[in-house]
Design a protein around this nucleic acid. Structure first.
Length: 577
RNA sequence: UGACCAAUGGUGUAAUGGUAACACAACGGUUUUUGGUACCGUCAUUCCAGGUUCGAAUCCUGGUUGGUCAACCA
């Protein structure tokens, strides 16, 4: 058997995204304007700032492609910064997975930082604000603080601690740091505007007390900065020019600006875009975590999950996800992207690059009655009709074959092009065969299909030029290899699983039939050791795109995941009827 | 009903005062040794009402609808 090079898509370079896009998205417009005006010294520095408290999903991929993509386009750089300001939620486990996923997507960050790297600087800046009378230590309980804050239509009531002396604030803040007080006893608040219609400006909390070991700073700190206090300054320290985030941070922007302006430090520009929503799935970390913890899926990397690791295991390529990110665009309005676009992207990529192979998922035996007993031969098959350079391979043919049970019907409807009694079809790359007899067991199940073949049609064409409408795939029984194949459907049965009425939960929208495991599939001998190539992607002809599951290598047996089916207009037509 | 943001085909994204474009989906067709791929065709006068203008998806005013914000989460 020749041509053993299983396709490893990570080493092949297919560029699906055109160099020059005709139009710019609104963020690129802002950047080009800034560049033209010489702002930031004509420099572009973006950042991707995940909190290490969960796995990355396709929504993060949008943000990653945006931040890294913009830097590449404008010859700038991108930092990876872990936003690790809350030790109660974060863990190194997530840091590693985030790094892996970004690399896998095909991006390299220019520098890696942690918000916790800046804890000392942030602390010094807090002291500066206290000294300027712009921050104070507040002893309101959480409940009291909430009450005092008012509502969007009612102004806040001043904390009784708002007008402490600078000396007292300095002393208390220092003692907070030294660990003198329990969790929740005090906070440091910025003194801004109690009557602001923007709730975030009503003396927001800068620091809270959390006696907990931090995954990087250990026991060094027991006070931790809030996102709003840490994020802008972290951007500023790194010299970020454009701080791109999702829409829900829009109302935080005045506060972001207040901190960097009040501290008189470099002021990056925060720009918000609409996060990705995908039909038939959920995207919130909380819900994904719930799916994992309550065992609705096998883990974060379950092939049905919208996580990067889930998509990877499912067989999605980095190229397909980048193509997807490019096609969905970037704007400020809420959106729900149809999963069919994601599916189109992976088909688009794999159609051009995937090794073709024959596999039978639901086998039924075919016996070629006029084929000589004991005879075997090798036939030639094209590895990829879209790419001649991938060459050809030999496939074994013999008297006994498996074909797909769905490719035979005793009593076929109109326009059924496949095998049925008396009809002639082509076995792909092999011969024309005609069904002459059907053998059934006592239950009436078909156990064997008897056919005759036309020896003159070797390779799949008849010298007399007669046309055969149907072509079906097959494997030789004596040469086929066993495989387990996992077929996935959407995890949710409705387009918007989040959209539930009062008293109901998204879990009720779970599709109970999203996983189907087929244990006795038969695949072409070409795939014998496909598990040695864990990143291999294949097209099983007429069925879809499949890739090796990592479990396959551990168990040294073939396990494939169906990434996506092929478009199937026949199935669609039938569904209508 | 406070502030902020958004509104263009079924779904997204463009059009930057001058003929509403592209992709996915859907539907119809051509080609085909994958009912795949490729190719062709069909599918919107831009939330509403006024205004500015020779001319408005775009600018202005008012409405409507949707989203975000009242964690010591990010």
């Amino acid at each position: 058997m020749e041509n053993r090079n299983f396709m490893n898509v990570d080493t092949k370079n297919s560029e699906l995204i055109p160099e020059e896009k005709i139009s710019l998205n609104f963020i690129e417009e802002i950047i080009e304007k800034d560049l033209a005006n010489g702002k930031n010294g004509k420099r572009v520095l973006t950042r991707f700032p995940p909190e290490p408290n969960g796995y990355l999903h396709i929504g993060h991929a949008k943000s990653i492609c945006l931040n890294f993509g913009i830097a590449q386009k404008y010859h700038g750089k991108t930092n990876l910064r872990f936003d690790d300001t809350n030790p109660t939620k974060e863990d190194v486990e997530y840091v590693d997975s985030i790094r892996e996923d970004i690399h896998w997507l095909g991006f390299n960050w220019d520098a890696e930082y942690y918000a916790s790297d800046y804890f000392e600087q942030l602390y010094q800046w807090a002291i500066q604000l206290i000294k300027e009378g712009k921050a104070y230590v507040c002893e309101l309980s959480q409940e009291e603080a909430s009450l005092y804050r008012g509502t969007p239509t009612q102004p806040a009531k001043a904390s009784p601690y708002r007008d402490r002396s600078i000396e007292e604030n300095l002393d208390l803040f220092e003692r907070m740091r030294q660990g003198e007080f329990p969790n929740g006893k005090m906070t440091l608040r910025a003194k801004i505007d109690l009557s602001s219609p923007n709730m975030h400006m009503r003396d927001p909390i800068m620091y809270r007390i959390i006696h907990q070991v931090h995954h990087r700073t250990g026991k060094k700190w027991c006070i931790y900065p809030m996102y709003d206090y840490a994020h802008g300054e972290s951007d500023s320290i790194e010299g970020i020019t454009h701080s791109i985030c999702t829409l829900e941070f829009e109302v935080h922007r005045p506060l972001y600006n207040w901190f960097v302006q009040t501290l008189k430090i470099h002021a990056p520009q925060q720009i918000e875009f609409a996060r990705l929503n995908l039909s038939y799935t959920v995207m919130s970390k909380r819900k994904l975590l719930q799916l994992v913890q309550e065992k609705y899926v096998s883990g974060w990397d379950d092939p049905r999950m919208p996580t990067i690791c889930g998509l990877r295991r499912r067989g999605y390529t980095p190229e397909s996800i980048r193509l997807f990110a490019d096609r969905i665009g970037v704007a400020k309005r809420d959106n729900v992207i149809d999963v069919s676009l994601l599916e189109w992207c992976i088909r688009e990529d794999l159609n051009a690059r995937a090794q073709r192979v024959m596999a039978v998922l639901n086998p039924v035996k075919v016996i070629i009655t006029n084929y000589p007993e004991g005879k075997g031969e090798e036939l030639e098959a094209v590895n990829n009709p879209e790419d001649e350079s991938m060459g050809k391979r030999k496939i074994k043919f013999s008297k006994e074959l498996y074909i797909e049970r769905e490719d035979f019907m005793e009593d076929p409807p109109k326009k059924y092009f496949r095998l049925s009694p008396g009809s002639e079809v082509r076995l792909r790359y092999a011969y024309f065969i005609t069904c002459t007899n059907v053998i059934k067991d006592s239950q009436g199940n078909i156990t064997e299909i008897h056919c005759t073949y036309d020896p003159a049609s070797r390779g799949g064409n008849s010298p007399d030029g007669r046309k055969v409408k149907g072509t079906i795939h097959w494997v030789s029984i004596q040469d086929a290899v066993d495989a387990e194949i996992r077929i996935f459907d959407r995890l949710f049965k409705v387009p918007a699983p989040d959209n539930v009425e009062e008293g109901h939960t998204f879990l009720e929208n779970i599709n109970p039939d999203s996983l189907e495991i087929r244990k006795n599939c038969k695949v072409e001998a070409f795939l014998t050791k496909a598990w040695q190539s864990p990143l291999a992607h294949f097209q099983f002809e007429r069925l879809g795109y499949f890739s090796i599951d990592p479990q396959s290598k551990n168990e040294q047996r073939l396990i494939f995941n169906r990434t996506v089916n092929l478009k199937d207009t026949w199935a669609k037509e039938n569904a209508k009827a």
